[in-house]
Design a protein around this nucleic acid. Structure first.
Length: 424
RNA sequence: GGGUCGGUGCCCGAGUGGCCAAAGGGAGCAGACUGUAAAUCUGCCGGCACUGCCUACGUAGGUUCAAAUCCUGCCCGGCCCA
């Protein structure tokens, strides 16, 4: 019924950081389908690549025959998780939170199958069972079972207690809410396993304890490691900010580029963690990649697979087609249709014929450069190419022609593209 | 509340009357080399109507031909005392 060896597979991919007794959990997973949940707090109206591991983990379990429960933290988002934070969070207001939950729900659905019979995913929102609980009930039914001593032992709590920022009672209580979520899902949906990032370990074990003490049954927990980058930067951040799953915030093209432009070391490390392909298949791909790293085989695999999962096959194909044109041959040879694809993926600004003389102003207002001064500098340093040709000082944007009577393709540096479209 | 030290560009940090749009480092941008990597090297790195002008060294005033630099008030932070 369930695929054997799931736990070992996860471990081999580098996806297990902590877990409750590995042998027991592994045997349990092999024996029969179980319910697993992963929580996502609605701190923004879109998830970002940092959340992908959680979604992919649920997907892996689903593919192996288990029942995934993505959880939107409508309630926990009200409080703020102190884990991994050095100071008290600013709380979002209810309307914003509600809005975020709605947007995120949709994204949580993307990678999972909700009509897969026994292994169907179930989207839950902890506000549904938490919002109505009275303070008294909560203290009796949850607080009673968890000691302050235990909460104080949490690393994130300790850190905050010794820092100057302090820790409010609200954030301190966060772990109780999360523990209650686990118990609720265990009681109502027979969910036995919670997973999360390594910073969630304390919250997860609190839930396991609560289940043992109040329900007299056992539950499992596991975490995946923090995704790190070889250069020490935070994963999922680029110069432009976070890489979002929302196509409005990060276009499929940009999303795909995030994976394409990944350093070799990171890409090789991430592939087993992010790809759903078997380890055997991946091993041969990695070998091939190491033999010819300039072909970016691993980056390409990640870019294609993840973009397809998040944005769909059509969007992934278009993004790839656009990138092939931009990073491939001479743009002046590109067909009208090809450029149309590019136009859909690359930021585009509509301009009038008469505006082409104001090169600095155009580049600045389109956001290609940060100011007209920056535009001057970049051009002086030969950093701007128009239709593939270096733009010299004093030339207008139309100096190298207009493609198909419609577009001027501007490239800044190696990877930034912008399209100027002539107003009709 | 008293004392004391400090608040400088995206970040760290030097500068204690003119030579200061402000050393140095980091980040960032561009160029070379490359593979839409990494490392390395070079240049840039407040804005604009760009051989000049404007705005900037917590904030508001003052002294001076001239202030990030001196004086006064205020705000904020560290430390010590109460």
């Amino acid at each position: 019924m369930t695929q054997k060896g799931l736990f070992d597979d996860l471990a081999a991919r580098g996806l297990i950081h902590d877990s409750t007794d590995a042998a027991t959990l592994s045997a349990r997973l092999d024996a029969e389908p179980i319910g697993i949940y992963v929580g996502f707090d609605p701190t923004a109206d879109s998830l970002h690549v940092g959340h992908l591991l959680g979604q992919l983990t649920l997907r892996r379990f689903q593919l192996a025959g288990h029942r995934p429960f993505p959880l939107a933290g409508g309630a926990t988002g009200m409080v703020g998780d102190p884990s991994g934070k050095s100071e008290e969070r600013n709380l979002l207001d209810r309307d914003t939170l509600q809005h975020n939950v709605e947007k995120i729900k949709n994204q949580l659905s993307r990678l999972l199958d909700f009509s897969a019979g026994a292994t169907s995913a179930t989207l839950v929102n902890n506000a549904d069972w938490t919002a109505q609980i009275t303070a008294l009930d909560f203290l009796r039914d949850v607080g009673k079972y968890i000691t302050v001593n235990q909460m104080m032992a949490k690393e994130s709590v300790k850190n905050r207690l010794t820092s100057e920022n302090g820790l409010s009672y609200t954030e301190f209580s966060y772990m109780l809410l999360q523990a209650n979520d686990f118990r609720h899902l265990c009681a109502t949906h027979n969910v036995e396993l919670q997973m999360g990032g390594s910073d969630q370990w304390g919250n997860i074990t609190a839930g396991i304890d609560l289940i043992r003490k109040s329900m007299s049954r056992s539950a499992f927990g596991a975490t995946w490691p923090l995704v790190t980058r070889s250069d020490g930067q935070k994963f999922g951040k680029t110069a432009g900010g976070a890489v979002w799953l929302d196509a409005q915030r990060t276009s499929p093209y940009q999303f795909r580029q995030f994976w394409m432009q990944m350093p070799d070391d990171d890409a090789v490390r991430y592939v087993p963690q992010f790809s759903l392909q078997s380890l055997d298949e991946l091993k041969s791909v990695i070998d091939e990649h190491n033999g010819a790293p300039e072909r970016r085989i691993v980056q390409r695999l990640l870019a294609t697979e993840i973009t397809t999962m998040v944005h769909g096959a059509d969007a992934a194909r278009d993004a790839e087609a656009a990138a092939d044109i931009l990073f491939g041959a001479d743009p002046t040879q590109a067909s009208f249709e090809a450029l149309n694809v590019v136009a859909a993926e690359v930021p585009t600004t509509v301009v009038g014929h008469d505006q082409f003389d104001d090169v600095f102003g155009l580049l600045a207002s389109a956001g290609v450069v940060t100011s007209t001064s920056d535009a001057r500098r970049t051009i002086a340093q030969k950093g701007i190419k128009v239709n593939g040709v270096v733009l010299e000082e004093g030339q207008t944007l139309a100096a190298h022609g207009v493609l198909h009577d419609k577009w001027v393709l501007v490239r800044k540096g190696k990877t930034t593209y912008h399209l100027f479209e002539i107003a009709r």
